[in-house]
Design a protein around this nucleic acid. Structure first.
Lengths: 235, 235
DNA sequence: TAGTGGTCTAGACCACTGC
DNA sequence: CAGTGGTCTAGACCACTAA
């Protein structure tokens, strides 16, 4: 009868509120009893939702106190950029993300690095290209591919928090569950040298990743190229 | 009244059975109803236990079928070396580990990369240097530091499986629980170029890692330098 | 069709935190 | 002390799997 389970509704509502910043880190969520009466459901149902949010790492629960917003994501899916030298400590190094190519529907490349399933090939791909900058300096070029399946309006609706992962989980209920990531140091090609404002042949960090999700057969593929003169990449 | 919750008992029993091999990968656990009557408890209690085992990654549950044993553990702490090109598929590329410097007691370096606790400084460090080779070719140079605390005979007893991690867990009950890892691409210094049989200035992959363990305040620090011409590093 | 896990209810008692 | 999350019960109907 019900399209979606009630605990899923509660889970999604709370998750959206946390990710969008309605609750901040350290805040208490409404108590279980409050959620029960608000949604008109039994406590075990609310607890199911909260238990899942705890597994996702979004909250922590304390007896006698309540459900506390954590929102320290497991860094497993994030490529985080850190200043390398001590000098960076004082300096600002806010990282900005800019689209070189906004998400667009396209074909998979013929010589795509990873093996694709029949399902993925049928669905086609969504491609985007982003750069991460510190001030005027380009730190990373990242090309991302995902399978174009059941992602309604993905290319039309703007990202949440400028983040692919926040957008996937809030708008599409897709959560990253694991990653295979490969690292190499390669000499900059002319194209990369241009993008990263380096000389041809300069050392570039290449990161090739395949992210698994809670949706069967749905993966996110990412190819990143980094100038690590002043920054390290944490992964 | 109860020292341990009933669902914890069920969880522990099943976990032990899985890890000890009583159930194999792909096997079905007893059904929820069977577990209920076996333990004489309510179904929601059994489900709590199974839900936790699912979160631990030990089982998978399927509607209409049952609880299936998975037991794929991830080895978060390993740097694994993979052939990069398709050509490597057919070829042998067994990786050999050789000591350049066997484990030895020493002082911490003055300009050590990571901040050390008072406890670590007091204890002093154990240092070792290893290379990984594919045939005659050096793929990686890795320098490792650990705090010299309560590691009886660590420098005297040979490694188990040539592996630091196997040795730490079997001989010293120390298990890796997490890692912070930083990646950079750097030009080879003369020393690195020599070790890795490359030209000066060639791109080198640098991996700096701090591993956390189940022993409070005990960390393993590792600095690795890789020739990624023919291999990628998975981490 | 019989058995499985998925969802849900309306209670209950407990240990703990904070006032 | 009132309120919180932790544990637990004894039912219920559902969708799914396999025989």
């Amino acid at each position: 009868m019900k399209d979606t389970a009630r605990y899923r509704t509660v889970q999604k509502d709370l998750r959206r509120s946390i990710i969008e910043g309605k609750y901040r880190v350290g805040d208490l969520l409404p108590s279980e009893n409050e959620l029960c009466s608000h949604y008109g459901i039994a406590r075990m149902t609310v607890r199911n939702a909260l238990s899942n949010l705890e597994t996702e790492g979004l909250i922590e629960r304390q007896k006698g106190k309540g459900s506390i917003v954590k929102f320290k994501r497991k860094s497993i899916e994030l490529l985080s950029i850190k200043g390398f030298t001590e000098i960076m400590k004082g300096k600002e190094h806010k990282i900005d993300t800019v689209f070189l190519q906004a998400p667009m529907v396209s074909q998979w490349e013929d010589d795509f690095y990873w093996a694709l399933s029949e399902m993925e090939i049928q669905a086609g791909s969504i491609f985007m290209s982003r750069i991460r900058m510190s001030g005027e300096k380009v730190i990373m070029v990242e090309n991302t591919f995902l399978s174009n399946s059941n992602l309604t309006d993905f290319c039309e609706i703007p990202f949440i928090n400028k983040s692919l992962f926040d957008t996937l989980i809030v708008n599409h209920d897709i959560e990253m569950t694991g990653v295979v990531q490969k690292f190499r140091a390669i000499p900059a090609t002319e194209e990369l040298a241009n993008s990263l404002q380096l000389g041809v042949g300069a050392p570039i960090l290449e990161i090739i990743r395949k992210l698994t999700t809670n949706r069967e057969g749905f993966f996110v593929y990412s190819f990143a190229y980094c100038n690590t003169d002043d920054f390290t990449i944490e992964a």
